[in-house]
Design a binder for these strands. Structure first.
Lengths: 252, 252
DNA sequence: CGATAGCTTGAGTAGATTCAAACAGAGTGG
DNA sequence: CCACTCTGTTTGAATCTACTCAAGCTATCG
């Protein structure tokens, strides 16, 4: 059930069998959630964190005008709100963008895990810092990249993050979200995302059709985005398409 | 020496006298750093975190074109890189925007503190989560607010964060950074920041002259920005200008 | 089969950028 | 003390990127 979570962790650090067992014993009772469902309302006080087993969710904030900004996407194997363990109340909402499977982990259980395995505590802390690193990369994208580079950086990130948990290969990956959703990630309008996707297609870099991303020229995409995956801290990752081999030549 | 750090913590949680003593004993040997000095290079491996005692520093990432995006400002009382304790290597650079005073805290010392006072461990974790919350608010600003609202939200945030540590009052605060720096925070050009500042001045909302911000109409600024300070998690804060009284009427 | 959600394209517009020039203030040195 | 430089601010004019509004298209589903 938590295979993808374990893959995510093991891309960054060693996890002992005892730790693995403890983690497995902490997650049970998965729930299905339909697409476009609000999972956590902004400002709610929480007593559990939620692990995403399948599907794509987003963290978002919105303005009175109804305009919405997605601040991060989460994929299978991510905690969608591990930070609620220390913040208690979230400064953003979380919703499912595709049909999802989720599982709760009570904060009390997380506290027990940290007590019993301090190393897991460090890893949990690391995971929230990883989210912050992803936020910073998005800040860079939103502030300084033009539309095509924003889109390219976004696709590169999702490619690696999905690849870590076995949901992407060199050809591409299923994303299952709409162009409108992508626009809300990139701070653009869906109309402009559509035009920019056409540009990427015409430049033979990538293709996005009915929720599936085809990577036509990964190197070209990375170059366009000036994509440097070091912000994802894949220190132990050696899988296909995202391995250390690939990182050669990229500044760290 | 760490009075402002303690103020920051106590705006969020109770700190015992024992904890205070342990923190005080962990910080010594402050260094002066000139404005425009690189403090930490992107990608460097670190064995200590740095506490900012005085001045303004920024976390930044940049593109090959030389364009720079600031992802967060830090003020007196902030750790500029507490996350390096779990990340070891930073995905961004850190530089002083004004003359600063900083003090190192070895990671080994942080580990000891956490061992001796698990509660401090939770607080350190919280502090990095607070940075992430600030990142998310910036993502919202960069993605969805227009220039005037970006600027207003930025001034509101700095007002509160400086107010917490006693460096701002209802009239305004010293920021000491250039319009170029502000532009790099907001994803704009300095030319447009200048025009937008004129707009705020003409609308009698705020004024920015030689590094000092005068708040002419705080309520108006907050309205323009749709500013909701709950992302700063000031659960115990009751000081002037940022107290709970002021939060009435703002959605949480 | 019509309804609906999402994608696509066009035309006109607006917000922010670029390029350029001028100005103000602080510090420097002859 | 005055020219001189340097950094940062201010303003104008032209340009461009992305937005808005609008319409038509496509695929899916009950």
């Amino acid at each position: 059930m938590i295979e993808q979570f374990l893959k995510k962790l093991r891309a960054r650090d060693e996890i002992s069998l005892e730790e693995e067992d403890a983690l497995r014993a902490s997650v049970s009772g998965d729930t299905r959630v339909a697409a476009d469902t609000l999972i956590i309302r902004q400002g709610d006080t929480l007593s559990e964190s939620t692990l995403l087993l399948e599907g794509i969710t987003c963290r978002f904030k919105d303005l009175l005008s109804g305009e919405r900004q997605i601040t991060e996407l989460n994929v299978a194997g991510d905690f969608i709100d591990l930070h609620s363990f220390s913040l208690k109340r979230l400064d953003h909402g979380i919703m499912a963008l595709t049909p999802c499977r989720i599982a709760p982990v009570p904060h009390s259980r997380i506290a027990q895990l940290i007590d019993a395995f301090p190393h897991l505590g460090r890893i949990f802390w690391f995971l929230t810092n990883l989210d912050a690193a992803i936020h910073r990369e998005w800040v860079l994208s939103l502030g300084r990249r033009h539309a095509a580079a924003k889109l390219a950086a976004f696709l590169c990130e999702m490619h690696i993050r999905l690849g870590i948990v076995g949901l992407a290969d060199d050809a591409g990956f299923a994303l299952g979200i709409t162009q409108e959703d992508v626009a809300e990630c990139l701070g653009l309008t869906s109309v402009h995302v559509n035009r920019t996707l056409r540009e990427l297609r015409e430049r033979c870099l990538a293709q996005f059709r009915s929720g599936r991303v085809e990577l036509l020229n990964l190197e070209g995409l990375r170059e366009l985005a000036e994509f440097d995956p070091s912000y994802l801290y894949l220190d132990r990752m050696r899988g296909p398409g995202v391995g250390v081999e690939q990182l050669d030549g990229w500044p760290r």
